[in-house]
Design a protein around this nucleic acid. Structure first.
Ligand SMILES: NC(=O)c1ccc[n+]([C@@H]2O[C@H](COP(=O)([O-])OP(=O)(O)OC[C@H]3O[C@@H](n4cnc5c(N)ncnc54)[C@H](O)[C@@H]3O)[C@@H](O)[C@H]2O)c1
Ligand SMILES: NC(=O)c1ccc[n+]([C@@H]2O[C@H](COP(=O)([O-])OP(=O)(O)OC[C@H]3O[C@@H](n4cnc5c(N)ncnc54)[C@H](O)[C@@H]3O)[C@@H](O)[C@H]2O)c1
Lengths: 208, 208
DNA sequence: GTGAGCTTGTGCTTTCTTTCACAATCTCCA
DNA sequence: TGGAGATTGTGAAAGAAAGCACAAGCTCAC
């Protein structure tokens, strides 16, 4: 039963279950057992059951989990059951790749605008949005009710951009620049550190 | 003292310390205390000391850590003290962004080639390398002694690519496609799941 | 209907991480 | 040179997460 709050590792896995369930659903299956989820995700069956049990009782003994209802419930729990508007700041290489990603144009996320501070980029199109002046960010995100911001600027600019985002009413920020951002009041920040991943991989390289 | 092996969370943080130290070094400082590292990284001073203690005694009481020696030692521990060759498979949006990233052209990493299976891309340049036929991957990586592979293909292709990489002698793989890869014998895989990050951020969005 | 066969939910145990606190050590200035 | 002040390394304690095992519950075939 839902006692208290779920640990963060559980939340991370929820997203994996969701992806798994979407695929299973697309395959036309109606139910899946925790063992079936283990097979597809590599996450232990016991772990799966425990994770889900933080949020309620979704399964039927002897049968497993009904795919569609679980999909609906998990989407709700993850707050992925209504559209979220997203902006990207820093229309460089990485920003452009993300902006073009179809995952950002799904039924859940929609990319509203991209921003930059480089005059030669402002006004140009980036895929299907226009690159706007970053100084307009607070106004635009406020007006449009944007909830999520993605930072793909150089590290030096990240803190300032985060503050602009907070000013524009953005509550959650995904930061790709390799620097620590001090969260403006009321915002959550998640850092994605690609160089870190690359370096960590080296640690695990077979020692000569 | 180095008792046994360091926990994975520690290894992840090592990469952060390294980045911090590089910056501190660039600023010309000779020493830094664990408290100083906390200030810059947000990681608790006690945690810093414990992490470092897994690998040896690097600091001097009353003074802190000598920046340059620590940088050298940590680089060695992370196996970042000699150049590593890297290839990217999947010369699409994300692959192109990564290929152009200067972090991959540093003194530590060097991008050797990019691969694709799309005939209209093969033979074209991607930044300063040429896009090659993915079928040539095992031969080329073998010949060049490539140690790290990055996968930026669609999910369906990832498993096959990983196996080609293993065949080509690659030991460590960074996978950006949203799928689970079953590690070929002798390879380490790290997954970077950008959509997961975006979904998790929604969970932490303020509940209405 | 009934029993064999799965599969769940969960309390308990084990393992892994982080935090705490302090003796030991070093610096540096008077 | 000596003592005040700073900072380390680390055991011990607390806290968090994962693994385990099994009673309870559901299904389905006969
Ligand atoms: N490209 C990659 O694959 C990659 C990999 C790992 C990390 N990163 C990080 O992601 C970030 C972006 O990388 P990139 O390769 O796209 O760099 P880039 O130079 O191609 O793009 C950065 C963009 O940010 C814009 N910008 C700079 N200051 C700004 C400001 N104050 N407000 C708004 N826009 C601003 C620039 O005009 C530029 O368009 C960097 O922090 C980089 O370290 C990138
Ligand atoms: N673009 C992003 O920002 C982004 C974000 C999150 C995740 N991803 C993931 O990264 C991967 C790449 O995304 P993308 O946007 O660059 O896609 P993309 O379609 O632009 O690029 C994929 C490339 O892989 C090549 N490819 C396909 N099969 C191949 C094979 N068997 N061998 C070699 N090459 C092959 C294609 O020809 C194409 O050039 C996808 O799995 C995507 O889900 C991308």
């Amino acid at each position: 039963m839902p006692t208290g709050r779920a640990p963060e590792p559980t939340v991370l896995r929820l997203s994996i279950y969701l992806r798994c369930l979407r695929q299973v659903h697309a395959e036309g299956l109606d139910t899946i057992s925790s063992a079936g989820i283990q097979e597809r995700t590599g996450i232990t069956a016991g772990q799966v059951r425990k994770d889900l049990s933080y949020f309620g009782e979704f399964g039927k003994p002897g049968l497993g989990y009904a795919v569609e209802p679980l999909l609906t419930r998990l989407s709700h729990i993850m707050q992925l059951d209504r559209p979220r508007k997203v902006v990207i700041v820093g229309a460089g290489n990485l920003g452009a790749a993300l902006a073009g990603y179809q995952g950002l144009r799904s039924s859940i996320f929609s990319l509203v605008a991209a921003f930059d501070n480089n005059l030669s980029k402002i006004g140009r199109p980036l895929w299907d949005v226009e690159i706007k002046d970053v100084r307009e960010l607070p106004r635009i995100t406020q007006e449009q009710g944007v909830e999520i911001g993605i930072i793909t600027t150089p590290a030096e600019a990240a803190q300032g951009v985060a503050e602009l985002m907070a000013q524009g009413g953005i509550r959650s920020i995904l930061n790709f620049s390799p620097t620590r951002i001090v969260s403006p009041q009321g915002t959550t920040i998640r850092n994605v550190d690609l160089m870190k991943e690359l370096e960590v991989i080296c640690f695990y390289l077979p020692k000569p």
